[in-house]
Simulated scan of single mutants.
Amino acid sequence: MRVLVVEDEVRTAAVLRRGLVEEGYAVDVAGDGIDAVWRATETAYDAVVLDLMLPGIDGFEVCRRLRAGHRWAPVLMLTARVYVDDRIRGLDAGADDYLPKPFSFGELTARLRALVRRGAAHRPVVLRVGAVELDPAGHRAWRDGAPVDLTAKEFALLHLLLCHPDEVLTRTYITEHVWDDAFDATSNIVDQYVRYLRRKIDRVGDPSLIETVRGVGYRLCVPLERAAADCGADVRGADVRRADVRGHRTPPAGNDGR
Rank of each mutant, 00 (worst) to 15 (best):
E176A: 15
T43S: 10
G138A: 10
F60A: 01
D244M: 14
P251F: 08
G217N: 03
T172F: 06
R89V: 05
E23I: 06
P165W: 00
W142C: 08
I201E: 05
E22Y: 02
P252T: 12
D8G: 02
W179K: 08
L150C: 13
V190W: 04
P136N: 01
I201W: 04
Y193G: 10
L50P: 01
L150M: 13
V82C: 09
M77Q: 01
V129T: 08
Q192C: 12
A47R: 03
G19Y: 13
C163G: 13
E9C: 00
A253G: 12
A44N: 14
V126M: 11
D46C: 08
L50D: 07
A137T: 06
G217K: 00
P223A: 04
E23W: 05
G24S: 03
G19F: 09
R128M: 02
G130S: 06
R214W: 05
L52E: 03
S208R: 06
T250F: 11
K101F: 11
G19I: 02
D8R: 02
R203E: 14
R64C: 02
D256H: 12
R111W: 03
G247R: 10
G33Q: 05
P100N: 06
H164P: 08
Y45C: 01
C63G: 01
R198Y: 08
F103G: 11
R171W: 01
G90W: 00
A243L: 12
L4P: 04
L197V: 13
P136Y: 04
D184W: 02
T186W: 12
A137E: 12
H177T: 12
A229Y: 06
G31K: 02
F155N: 10
D86S: 06
L157S: 08
F183L: 06
L115N: 04
L220K: 04
T151N: 12
L134I: 05
D184I: 06
